[in-house]
Design a protein around this nucleic acid. Structure first.
Length: 548
RNA sequence: GACCGGGUAGCUCAGCCGGUAGAGCAUCGGCCUUUUAAGCCGCUGGUCGAGGGUUCGAAUCCCUCCCCGGUCACCA
């Protein structure tokens, strides 16, 4: 093949790190520039419609291939009698069938796949040669009538000068055209390939977008029975103290203030400050960061809906939660009953409500208050009861014996107060917290409290919590005195709710792994790359450049 | 972190009781105006994840390490 001419900049020459397999693509790129005068990284194109829209434009009454119409041999017909609707479409070339003087391609965009046809007779020679040169993976633009082929496949036929062109040349070799991209590692690392090569992946993420959109609509314009709208707010992701959940935080550093900061594990304590300030109904949909293990259900950064309602309680949160999730199932999933793996999940209202203790009794055959039997069961399921408080042990056994049996949507209510430091207890039961967790398909999807607003009880809970920590953990679990001060200013009684958006999307899209609903899940670096050099302490660039 | 499975051509995968590396698709060259994963002919393409060991000889057996997936652990 020819190498770069003097007119070609050096960047078009082979890089020593580039696989030889790309040599053909490089040569073709140069050829497009030199022989065709084509910019292989072209610009703006007006007047495009989606492939799905083009398919809908098809009009059988204009189609000479439909029985009764004349001249059925030339479907790229350009005669004045042609009444077929003319469209302009763009898409990635995912199939390419060159049969001599006629080239068929299948283009793909976010809406559909659609066949296009380029006939030597119907286009200028340059456009026809470009059609023959097109590679799998190129972006193509085609203009012409929407018709069919002899086999009735709806096809956009390129007709006229410049009616087929390559808008962007790919330099990469595409995945196998039938199997798509299968290797999970490659799918997550090269999501940009996964998205186009596996259409259902793109559909999942479009659905995710619709789910989040619908949640926002629901909360900012709620059903009448739920009362006033909720206001969307944004609170700090970089926090001085990582509060609101017990997870280990990520640490970062602000240079100008020479200050260590934590990425938030939850927005809870800030949203409650807003209740104090007089915002009665607030919500936030945003990322939390927890420095813990990865699993099918855990990614270090994940998206959470948190919501607070003044003068509500966990009962109001229950009503809201089941209404919201039912609405999403029906409107986005298309049915009140949706598959998840081998299960059929029934999102009909009302969801089951059962107390923490009743569920323990139901699945274990004795009350959780029976300490001796609890200890015996703990040993039986492999939990060491040594030195554990009754309620903490109960919780471990509960998670081991009950959680995995909660397949259908179930509100688990009234947790032991000792594991709920931010929750108000029941008026007559100081040992029971007004908290629920919603379980679906063994996953904790939502978590809600009647919020604790007594500053003295809150402070006592914090102190008890910190006292039980080893020194290493205690470092980042300092008591948030400003939050206590806010409670002293006075937080109205309130209900609060958190919903794990990623898990909800998993359920509604029947996705087994959280990585299938997060576009770019965290992965280890591939090639033992050295970490980037640390930033200089003095932020010289930050001044005088672009400032907001 | 532990255990199990995997890493072979750009992609999807065989080969794994040791004997110099295979298929399909893609690429490249040729033919073809109604193809649907088009077809036909021909040609390319691999430090078999990395390093070490055993052996006359290692993709294959052994050791160490890296990456991915799964299970478990961690996650008030």
């Amino acid at each position: 093949m020819t190498d770069a001419t003097p007119s070609e900049p050096a960047r078009h020459a082979h890089s020593s790190t580039e696989p030889d397999l790309l040599a053909d693509r490089r040569a073709k790129l140069n050829r497009l520039r030199q022989e065709f005068g084509l910019d292989p990284y072209g610009g703006r194109v007006d007047g495009l419609i989606t492939l799905a829209a083009a398919r809908e434009r098809y009009d059988p009454s204009s189609d000479p291939n439909v029985a009764g119409a004349a001249d059925s041999t030339d479907t790229a017909d350009t005669s004045a009698a042609d009444r077929r609707p003319v469209v302009k479409v763009a898409g990635r070339v995912v199939l390419h069938r060159d049969i001599g003087s006629l080239v068929f391609m299948t283009l793909r965009d976010a809406t559909a796949d659609l066949q296009i046809g380029v006939s030597k007779k119907a286009v200028d020679p340059r456009a026809f040669k470009l059609a023959k040169l097109a590679d799998l993976g190129d972006w193509a633009v085609v203009q012409g009538p929407v018709g069919t082929t002899k086999t009735k496949e709806i096809t956009v036929w390129a007709v006229g000068e410049g009616s087929f062109t390559i808008a962007t040349k790919t330099l990469a070799l595409p995945p196998e055209k039938h199997h798509g991209l299968q290797d999970p590692e490659l799918r997550y690392r090269k999501r940009y390939v996964d998205l186009y090569a596996n259409p259902h992946v793109l559909q999942t993420f479009l659905k995710r977008s619709r789910i989040i959109q619908r949640v926002r609509d629901f909360l900012t314009n709620p059903p009448a029975s739920l009362g006033d709208p909720y206001v969307e707010v944004e609170t700090p992701m970089m926090q001085l103290l990582p509060g609101g959940a017990a997870a280990r935080p990520f640490i970062t550093h602000h240079n100008a203030l020479d200050l260590d900061l934590y990425l938030r594990v939850a927005p809870e304590l800030y949203l409650k400050r807003l209740l104090v300030g007089g915002m009665p109904r607030v919500f936030e949909i945003n990322r939390n960061f927890r420095n813990e293990g990865l699993s099918q259900r855990h990614n270090p950064e994940f998206t959470m809906l948190e919501l607070y309602q003044a003068f509500g309680d966990y009962g109001s949160m229950m009503t809201l939660t089941e209404r919201l999730i039912h609405t999403l199932a029906v409107e986005i999933g298309g049915s009140a009953t949706l598959p998840f793996g081998d299960w059929q999940i029934d999102y009909s209202m009302p969801f089951r409500r059962a107390s923490y203790h009743d569920l323990f009794q139901e699945h274990n055959g004795f009350p959780g208050s029976d300490h001796d039997r609890l200890v015996a069961l703990a040993k039986h399921v492999g939990i060491d009861p040594q030195g554990k408080d009754h309620d903490l042990l109960l919780n471990e056994v509960w998670e081991e014996t009950v959680e995995e049996r909660l397949i259908q949507p179930t509100f688990v209510m009234d947790y032991p107060a000792v594991i709920c430091p931010l929750t108000k207890t029941k008026p007559d039961r100081p040992d029971i917290a007004e908290r629920f967790e919603l379980f679906i398909a063994r996953m904790e999807v939502a978590n809600a409290y009647t919020e604790l607003n007594d500053p003295d009880v809150q402070e006592a809970n914090f102190r008890r919590q910190v006292a039980g920590l080893d020194p290493e953990e205690a470092v980042f679990r300092t008591i948030d005195q400003d939050f206590l001060e806010a409670l002293r200013v006075g937080m109205p009684p309130a209900g609060g709710l958190g919903i794990g958006i990623d898990r909800l999307v998993m359920l509604l899209t029947n996705s087994r792994s959280i990585r299938d609903v997060i576009l770019f899940p965290l992965m280890r670096p591939q090639n033992q790359q050295p970490p980037p050099a640390p930033l200089p302490d003095k932020p010289t660039q930050q001044r005088g450049t672009t400032s907001g």
